[in-house]
Design a protein around this nucleic acid. Structure first.
Lengths: 219, 219, 219, 219
DNA sequence: TATGAATGAGACTTCATTCAT
DNA sequence: TATGAATGAAGTCTCATTCAT
């Protein structure tokens, strides 16, 4: 950032620019986000935009940051409340919250997350992932006696990304799918809960390997 | 007598255009794909490109189609081989194949799949998903006695998207993560296998495990 | 023309190319006339088109020539029949014929005439005008005793262009005008007849110049 | 205090763009009008052109509008002055003015009017025609006692289009015709005056003149 | 002769960014 | 500091014409 917006007015300005950007993204998608349009909507000139953001990417980064913080805050709040619950309930609560958060502000988070592969957005997603990881760790810590909860990095990665992207993909569906949102959430909660509870992949599985399949060389 | 070689030539040209497009996508990403550049790389003029593709989107569609077919073919082949294996093994085989397929041709499929939300690419992804669904169904059918394998639409959706996008996300990581590819695959295979085997989320979940969890009435 | 189409086949080819061009003009307008499309429609290759026409303009010229000939033939025929009639009737007959001719072949002549300002089309129009002039002369000659018919070049120019373009403009109207085709023709016939019959502009006029207007310095 | 000069500047720029467009049209015709060329000639970049005009058509529309207004203003002024004159004089004055207006600015109006069939230009022509109609009506109203002046829609249509297009056609002539501009104007004025004065075509025509014409029952 | 794939200049339009005021 | 007009590179697509086969 070119300069820290110390002054009140500057902060207000930055905020309204980011808000304007969010509105535009929600209305017409990220591709419709032009600097001039953002400035216009925020009621300032493009020049002013560049006073506070080095370039367009930085503006987007700020928007991501905002959305990300909302997401994280939501997750934090819900996780805190559900920390004592059993894994299934916990997962369910988190999922519900995530779903709602993605749809909040007319789907702003959703619209942005679709573009996670753009570098600056990716970083935002990364922060969210990290937070989720911490939350899972916290849950594990709280339940260390009840279950052998121990989300390995790999497992956490799987759970988090599976959930996030499946949600994303669900929201992107044009035609309504053959199942309700409830069902989807239930499935995902079950999946998440199982992963949280189960031991390492080697030790578990389905237990029944009657079918003599080619062993994949994996660990 | 004359048509043959002409069609032959056309096919070669179309092919080299699509290949050129693929190369560019791999090298500099989908955004760097310009019609002129594709033509140049294919060693022809833009005009020729438009002789075979109505517009840029159609070219991309052709590329998607190609990649998609490869993906599907790979999955088909592997699934056929592993159909008799137990769920865990089956999942593992499929995942390995998918992973490899995503990384094939320098990550072309990966680079394209990142843009799944663009309409034309989305359709490609959709075809792949449908195929995966069929494969899962086929597996279920083959194992109907061994397990209560019955992937509901919701569950299939979850499994497939979880796997695909988690893989995608993994491939997008800048810094190497704290786990190895093997671990990731193992986790995902475990997840997939469990989902294939388990009953409906309501009937199963944490309940089957005799771990005395504190039942909180949920949030 | 590159070479005189002496051979039968060549003549047929040229003809079908010109016909194809006409069809396209009628269907989608002169702007949609591309050489490739003409060749395709005529069932030959572009190369062949260029065997018989040096360039696109020459093809258009040939089309104009064809249409022009039709126009002239029609006018000739009708004029011959009406040569003995009184001016009003004569004019009426000619006008009706012209109107029909413009609309013939789905308005091909109309569509082309709209573009009279393009050099090669202009020339076509010129030929038609010349012919009309001859027809008027012939009429004058046949009626030299009855009326002081003497279409001066200027007058002929006025009559012919007035009629042609007014017809053209009428055909181009989107919304139906406030009058019927009949009325229009009647007005035009009256106008034409009067011009044919009247003396020189100086000698006639309305005869009543009670209003002391500023005299324009004209003539 | 700041808006004024800015708007001023904008107006100047818009004006120079339109002027540049006019110059180009006059020099090389409407087909040579490219956005880049207009911008260059106006001494700005293409981007600036698009700051003031949504697209090329809008620029052309502005040009038409300008030319059209000039045309209308000229006609208005002249008509006002000649309103009291007899029809012949009135027509003559109007025609002279129209002729001059078409030739003004190196024939800009002429060059544009040639393309009347293009939608956006057609609208311009329509406005001019409407104005001419109003002028004729006004003349009729002022002379209602002297003559049975009453231009029916059909007749007005004929007069106006005859005059406009004949003028246009005259201006398009490559080779000098066999008559002088004066003669042409005289003929047209006579024609126009007669149409304004005469009764309905049925009631008049050749019948009023005592020339013993052979009455043929028409074709 | 006939074919038709290939050419490539050139048209329109967009938008992140700058800089004189 | 704020303004917003100006920039201009770059992207997509068209089509008359050529020329190797």
């Amino acid at each position: 950032m070119r300069k820290k917006p110390i002054q009140q007015r500057a902060r207000v300005l930055v905020s309204s620019l980011v808000d304007a950007a969010g509105d535009i993204v929600v209305e017409d998608g990220l591709d419709a986000l032009t600097t001039v349009r953002v400035a216009e909507r925020a009621g300032v000139s493009v020049g002013s935009l560049y006073q506070y953001f080095q370039n367009k990417d930085e503006l987007i980064a700020a928007l991501i940051e905002q959305v990300d913080s909302d997401l994280i805050a939501t997750v934090d709040r819900v996780a805190m409340d559900a920390l004592a619950a059993d894994p299934q309930t916990f997962a369910r609560a988190l999922l519900n919250a995530a779903f709602d958060a993605f749809e909040a502000r007319n789907g702003l988070a959703y619209e942005l997350l679709k573009h996670w592969h753009r570098l600056d957005i990716g970083r935002g997603l990364y922060r969210f992932e990290q937070r989720m990881l911490e939350v899972l760790r916290a849950y594990a810590l709280a339940h260390i006696r009840d279950h052998q909860v121990d989300p390995s990095p790999a497992r956490a990665f799987v759970v988090i990304n599976s959930v996030v992207f499946t949600l994303l993909r669900y929201l992107s569906l044009d035609a309504p799918p053959l199942f309700r949102r409830d069902e989807l959430l239930a499935e995902m909660a079950a999946m998440a809960a199982r992963l949280l509870v189960a031991g390492s992949p080697a030790a578990q599985g389905t237990g029944r390997r009657k079918v003599p399949g080619r062993r994949s060389p994996g660990r």
